[in-house]
Design a protein around this nucleic acid. Structure first.
Length: 550
RNA sequence: GGCACCAUAGUCUAGCGGCUAGGACGUUCGCCUCUCACGCGAAAGACCGGAGUUCGAUUCUCCGUGGUGCUACCA
């Protein structure tokens, strides 16, 4: 077979050769050891938490080595294209502070960088040039078989194939053996065709492969005649990956573990073209416990898979990043404990420290991290963040906050600051409910079962008569205690010894006031809250409760 | 069906031939506070199973088992 002739038959319109592009995009001028990393989302929806996960690896690695992190749009599947998704990807990266140095920046901003175009659908001519090169080298052939239309199609076909044999064919025995004349006839007849790799690999043969996360591995050679160019002229991932990461000089490909099985086919394509493959880092996949089963975080079922979820819920960016970092390098939290105020960029991140099993998403942990982040911030900052969040997601509340700025600031300052700040907020959306008593009245709440109602009532009646909002914390407590004791509430320890003899404990008395005033059993320092509310409101609310105590 | 990845408490993990198997979240219980938290202290809770290698395996090898992924003209 005359492969040059074949390449002209297949790609008569391709003007340049591979060398042309190789010299058009020369090596990057970067310091020794600089790593070039990238994120290649496909615009099929939102940005997945897994994208943020690998983007952080890429961003930190590039920053640490004075390299480059760029964003490339992998939009070769036009069937799954969703308008707006590309912008979301870029915007979310920026929002989370994982900003790319170059590449695609959304529909309205020009791309940055000398190695573009960074949108794969704009690069078909380049891909076809490389495809033609492969044909010339006798390493690719046209396939005229009918394609599978859907996932179901494929599964069905696979089932059928398995009925007769125990393996799925890897070589395309039919089309790889067509003669030039047959191919020419098919082309002239206008039959659609895809370009496939003519694999020369032998799966019995193994070779060493080093993955930056998994370490040294032995993998089998590829034997699959993978599709290089689809019948619409656009390549699927494999060729696009090889061409783009060569031309854009990516040094480390960070991608999800689901790609791991295809490295040998990617390496074969690099080799067939005489190109050097990059280093690979296959990351674990974030999963979730669904009943008894562990599974990948799913787009449809799990709102937390979408990075926008955390914004809508009001998690600070820093909380999410610290959580992801903690998943990535598990010694992060030890470092954080030692350096509570340090910027996360000071943490000694390493790709090698990434574990290789798939972690499950844990809200408890995220919330805990977030509480620790927020409790260190001054009230002004917390207020500003809540306000910014509310302006977007709860304008009414934002309005309320702005009109009561001083009150809210005072509220946020209760138990804040110092070595042992209160940790009660992990996301801005919870604040409205958490401090609802500040701005809203409520129906009289239930009181604890163990408290005797008639005495509770007498206690509250007397207390509200005597309550003086000018008392400081000490005096305030002393007053509650005295009045409670007078109404048969007992010292905590004594009460424990003989509960039935008393109306309740001092703690119960306090809680009675707390519940009456706030409607909640846990709140920051009650004395401060009462001062904030003012005597009138406090009196009204306590009276409301009194009415229910008959 | 084939191929691969993974396997330590409910969860995230440390471990890299000899440890009372360490930490964190969560849970429970104390202490502190004459309230809620915070903080402090403690408890419960793990090496998937079986062979081998070894004086000795959580650690190394093999075989099971389980979970996951891939086996698309999706990425």
């Amino acid at each position: 077979m005359d492969y040059n002739k074949l390449s002209e038959l297949l790609y008569p319109n391709v003007k340049h050769d591979m060398q042309y592009y190789l010299s058009k995009y020369p090596n990057r001028n970067l310091p020794d050891g600089a790593e070039v990393t990238r994120l290649g989302p496909s615009p099929t929806g939102y940005l997945h938490i897994g994208h943020l996960y690998s983007a952080m690896i890429s961003r930190i690695t590039a920053t640490k080595t004075n390299g480059v992190f760029y964003l490339r749009l992998e939009d070769t599947d036009q069937k799954r294209f969703i308008p707006g998704a590309a912008d979301i990807a870029y915007n979310m990266l920026c929002y989370y502070g994982v900003t790319p140095d170059e590449g695609y920046r959304g529909e309205n901003l020009p791309q940055i960088g000398e190695y573009g175009d960074y949108v794969q659908s704009h690069r078909t001519e380049i891909y076809q040039t490389f495809a033609k090169e492969l044909v010339k080298k006798g390493r690719a052939f046209p396939c005229f078989c009918e394609k599978s239309e859907s996932k179901d199609d494929i599964l069905e076909r696979r089932e059928k194939e398995l009925e007769n044999s125990d393996t799925i064919t890897e070589h395309d025995e039919h089309c790889r053996n067509l003669t030039y004349e047959q191919i020419e006839a098919n082309i002239k007849a206008g039959k659609p065709w895809a370009l496939k790799l003519l694999s020369t690999g032998n799966p019995e043969k193994q070779h060493e492969f080093v993955d930056l996360i998994k370490g040294k591995r032995v993998i089998r050679e590829n034997a699959r005649d993978v599709v290089l160019v689809k019948s619409n002229g656009i390549p699927p991932y494999a060729l696009a990956h090889v061409v783009d990461d060569t031309l854009m000089h990516t040094t480390i490909v960070v991608r999800g573990e689901e790609w791991y099985p295809s490295v040998s086919s990617h390496i074969e394509i690099f080799n067939a073209l005489g190109l050097k493959p990059p280093k690979y880092a296959h990351t674990p996949v974030i999963s979730k416990l669904d009943g008894e089963n562990k599974r990948k975080l799913s787009k449809r079922k799990d709102p937390e898979a979408d990075v926008r979820y955390y914004i809508e819920t009001g998690y600070p960016i820093q909380s999410v990043k610290e959580y992801v970092l903690n998943l990535l390098n598990s010694d992060f939290e030890q470092w954080r404990n030692k350096n509570p105020l340090a910027d996360i960029s000071e943490f000694d991140f390493s790709i090698k420290k990434i574990g290789s099993n798939n972690p499950m998403f844990d809200f408890d942990k995220l919330n805990n991290i977030s509480k620790n982040v927020i409790c260190r911030w001054p009230a002004e900052r917390v207020f500003a963040e809540i306000n910014t969040w509310a302006e977007k997601y709860d304008p009414k509340y934002a309005n309320l906050l702005q009109n009561n700025r001083e009150t809210m600031l005072k509220m946020l300052n209760i138990d804040r600051g110092g070595d042992r700040p209160r940790k009660d907020i992990y996301a801005w959306s919870m604040v409205k409910e958490l401090y609802s008593y500040l701005f809203e009245d409520f129906n009289a709440p239930q009181i604890a079962d163990n408290i005797k109602k008639p005495e509770a009532k007498e206690f509250l009646v007397e207390y509200i008569k005597k309550y003086d909002e000018k008392l400081d914390k000490q005096a305030w407590f002393e007053q509650i205690k005295q009045i409670a004791l007078a109404h048969n509430f007992a010292d905590n320890k004594e009460y424990k010894l003989n509960p039935s003899a008393y109306a309740g404990s001092i703690a119960d008395a306090c809680n009675l006031v707390r519940v009456a005033v706030t409607g909640k059993t846990t709140t920051p320092d009650l004395c401060s809250i009462m001062q904030l509310l003012g005597k009138q409101k406090v009196a009204n609310r306590i009276n409301n409760l009194i009415k229910t105590l008959q």
